[in-house]
Amino acid sequence: MTHVIELEGVAKRYGGADAPALGPVDLAVAEGEALAVTGPSGSGKSTLLNLVAGLDRPTEGTVTVAGQRIDRLSEHALARHRRTRIGMVFQFFNLLDDLTVVDNIQLPAQLTGASRRAAASRAGELMDVLGIQKHARAYPGRLSGGERQRVAVARALVNRPALLLADEPTGALDTASGQEVRELLVDLHRGGQTVVLVTHDLELARACAHRTIHLVDGRIALDTRAEAVR
């Protein structure tokens, strides 16, 4: 079995704090797996996500993503790692307000040096799949929360990443929009996309992931598997 994520003895301390914010943690996520990370505030969920995304570096241990050890990469190499192997979806969307929907989606592709035509083609394909084609020239500020999150998902997928990371993807959405995004994530997983989902919402975790780890005070307190995603 190929692991997309391998964490070995990973710990993260901030400043001079005695207790680590995370770890030590050992974790392996297989290709095509959907993992939900749950836990109370301050349990280390976002820290874990940031370490996997290469947004932060561990104090101890090694982080390997898609076969590449990333905990010692330069900032430049980490940026390349993120743009090619990782797609990220945030709670508050993090779309660039001054770019149109299509420009937001194309941005990661353009950062890799893809031609404008290739980036536009891929963005169009994703917008079709996600049902946001009609908003291509709109600005994010005019879209509903659910629509914005779809744009964020499209942006995350534009470079066909090995791993999709979602940080509270429904946390800022109303119930209906949350349901839409939940279904979208399920569809993506069913399509073979490896997904790591950080959430407080146990219902979302159950719906989208067949494996859930529960963090308490930076450590994995529970690691449970379901038969299949509901």
């Binding site: 430049h76 940026a79 993120r82 993090n94 779309l95 941005l107 950062l111 942006r155």
Partner: peptide
């Protein structure tokens, strides 16, 4: 700075 963070999160390198 937040937009910069977004750009970096989606892969903008330090040089970019």
């Amino acid at each position: 700075v937040h937009d910069l963070g977004v750009c970096k999160a989606v892969g903008m390198s330090p040089r970019q």
